[in-house]
Nucleic acid binder design. Structure first.
Lengths: 327, 327
DNA sequence: CGCTATAATAACAACGTTGTTATTATTGTA
DNA sequence: TACAATAATAACAACGTTGTTATTATAGCG
């Protein structure tokens, strides 16, 4: 029951090949004819059949996204953003929440033009995909695919450096520490390296949290407050953790930044809606999606792409930080 | 560079139409020939081209899911489950995180066989889709589409009834109450109706929470504990809220079910991993996805489908509830 | 052995679109 | 006015697959 170019051709009293050209805005069609055809197409509610189109063009104008961990909220905003950006570039996204191999099979059938994989454990085997694949996560040389990587280590280092330069000598990092999640591990490593280099390793602490939920931050911060020596600055490993940390600070009656300065790692916007607008360090979400879409487009047009693409984090300081007098 | 049936035909020295039949397991092909073709197809890593297939069959074997609110975690498990079920039925899902209208246009181009909409505010206008649409949410007669609805009101009523029958006379409901979210409102209404009918309206309380996160439950429960008269039973509006409620109870040193009985609304599994396995009332996730997939299949094969399909909740009582002696 | 009935395979048209080639209409120029 | 050059449109093939029809190979039987 779908409207095809043949229906339009009949209505406009031209051949269907003329309709095809008119709708693709070809200069081979006279302007008035073109206008007439476009108008009729709109009236009939014509939607081009992607199957037919991709069959002949060998392009589907579709990007596959592998996202096996749909429950992880952190990535949701990322995918939403990427999807929006790709729509702007008139690509459609096909999201698969299966494992890599299964997803690639599906995507091959659909002849997607490229695949973006959010699978953390980027598989070592080259996974026989006929189309370019790009992964988001931790870059390493052996990866068979180009990778876009947020430089998390650098981000946390920047936060530590900033705080040290502003007189802080007791800094506590609250975040995930499981070896499994490399993304979290990188941040911790950045912290440890930086405090070492700045000579404040002795007075610096890492508090490991179970999960990255708001409540975990809350509990961790309560622990921190209970200790005899409260640090002068906190670095939080994620946006959600920061929410909990703020609650704990609030309950304890401490002031920010009077008693404690806080910098939160994140790449989500919306940190401004907090009671205290948080200082943050990380790559803006917009930058990541922009870059991912950009690389995908380059891969599709078969341009060369660097193996590892690092995005540099930005340090955004607000009133949640203040300079510390040496005591 | 993709492998087509013609490549297989050449390798197997048969015509391509024979290959097509062999791969679709047609009885028109002799068994040994069939086996040979299937083997070669596997060797070459053949994946049928969906574009070509759907062009000729007018079926895409693809289901579109409209999910504009990708950030809502609650639905994630639902979509993951639905996706898995549809895969079993050899359908692929196309998830769109755009608004209904935009999504329908995309889906029309892709010739999806049906659309499942998780958009809460199910639009009144019939949205000119050429394929059947089914919505998940609150059923009402005017909706232009068939709707699968969890009977939330009934669920909470069942919880209240159970508790009343077991001697509880002071019950508190903790949950969302904004008029905007009908899904939450229904539960509250169920509670209010039931306490009224059971004649315990005077001693029953509704605590409204801002959001449905774990922390909101925690805060609400702390408020409850602080009051002079602690209720003998709590009904929680969601799985996440329950997590926070349990923390608060734990902190306060109350025992479950000794001091307070708890029933949690939810349809997510994994409540068993809690310290105290919670009593729950709701429709099992599995039942919902099963039903949704079932209805979708019926719609595709053009069978008649009821306008509103109600799923009856199940009350699952564990050791988090106990009978209360009248004081 | 020769013929028909049937099994097995091959050839072909169609799905809706695009790019190329062929045809027809229009214009410019001597 | 006649003829080429060019503009506009139409016709056609192809993309990879499926369902239908046509052809060829095999078996059954008198």
């Amino acid at each position: 029951m779908g409207v095809t170019i043949k229906d339009i051709a009949k209505a406009a009293e031209v051949s269907y090949s003329t309709v095809s050209k008119a709708l693709r805005d070809s200069p081979l069609v006279k302007e008035p004819t073109k206008q007439k055809i476009i108008k009729i197409a709109a009236q009939l509610g014509y939607q081009p059949n992607v199957a037919a189109r991709s069959l002949v063009s060998k392009k589907s104008h579709t990007i596959g996204i592998v996202w096996p961990t749909i429950e992880r909220v952190t990535h949701s905003a990322l995918i939403t953003g990427l999807n929006k950006r790709l729509e702007e570039l008139s690509y459609t996204t096909l999201i698969s929440i299966n494992d890599m191999e299964h997803a690639i099979n599906t995507f091959n059938r659909y002849q997607v033009d490229a695949i973006v994989a959010f699978d953390e454990r980027n598989s070592q085997e080259p996974a026989n995909s006929t189309v370019p694949i790009i992964t988001y996560g931790i870059a390493h040389e052996e990866s068979p695919f180009p990778t876009v990587d947020v430089n998390r280590k650098q981000a946390v280092r920047a936060a530590v450096n900033y705080l040290t330069e502003h007189g802080h000598e007791e800094i506590t990092y609250i975040g995930g520490m499981t070896k499994v999640d490399h993304l979290q591990e990188e941040k911790v490593n950045g912290f440890l390296e930086a405090v070492q280099e700045n000579g404040i390793a002795a007075s610096s602490v890492v508090i490991a949290v179970e999960d990255l939920e708001s409540y975990d931050g809350y509990e961790a911060m309560k622990k921190v407050c209970a200790a005899q020596a409260v640090p002068t600055a906190i670095i939080s490993g994620s946006h959600d953790l920061s929410k909990g940390i703020l609650r704990a600070v609030h309950e304890k009656g401490l002031s920010i930044p009077g008693d404690v300065s806080i910098i939160s790692y994140d790449n989500i916007p919306a940190t401004e809606s907090f009671e205290v607008p948080l200082s943050t360090v990380g790559v803006p979400l917009h930058t990541i999606t922009e870059k991912l879409a950009d690389v995908v487009m380059r891969l599709i047009s078969e341009e060369k792409v660097e193996q590892n693409i690092y995005l540099e984090p930005e340090l955004k300081i607000t009133e949640s930080c203040q300079t510390r007098r040496r005591s």
